[in-house]
């Protein structure tokens, strides 16, 4: 079973994402901001990170840059999932090493199709 770290400061979003991803047979862990996510990854690297952008303490982009510099941090597939929906944000995320990008609001179909695009399903 593949592990997925869901990073979002909204409890509601984490719950929705967890429900969708558990149905797709992922083992879910949660983090509430970028720093929490980084600590999680250092302790136990997940296969996938579903990543919000705007969060307190450390945002998603800073987390991604830090993750890719970490030992073994190249491995996880990182999928952004954010309300930031303009080309400048999308380009910045992909240049920083994101594998896919979901613009909120999302539904099960979008998560499923994006995850299958990057070979996770």
């Amino acid at each position: 079973m593949k592990s997925c770290l869901v990073v979002d400061d909204s409890k509601v979003i984490r719950k929705v994402a967890r429900r969708i991803l558990e149905e797709l047979s992922f083992d879910i862990k949660e983090a509430v901001d970028g720093q929490d996510a980084l600590d999680n990854c250092i302790a136990d690297m997940p296969d996938v990170v579903l990543l919000d952008w705007n969060m307190p303490i450390m945002n998603g982009l800073d987390f991604l840059k830090a993750l890719r510099r970490t030992d073994g941090g190249d491995n996880p597939v990182v999928v952004f999932c954010t309300t930031e929906n303009d080309m400048a944000h999308i380009s910045a995320a992909i240049s920083a090493g994101a594998d896919e990008y979901i613009m909120k609001p999302f539904d099960r179909e979008i998560i499923e199709s994006k995850f299958s695009q990057v070979g996770l399903l």
Partner: peptide, 10 residues
């Protein structure tokens, strides 16, 4: 977003 890779969107 349904089915299309982000790189194609870009």
């Amino acid at each position: 977003q349904r089915g299309m890779p982000i790189k194609y969107l870009m």
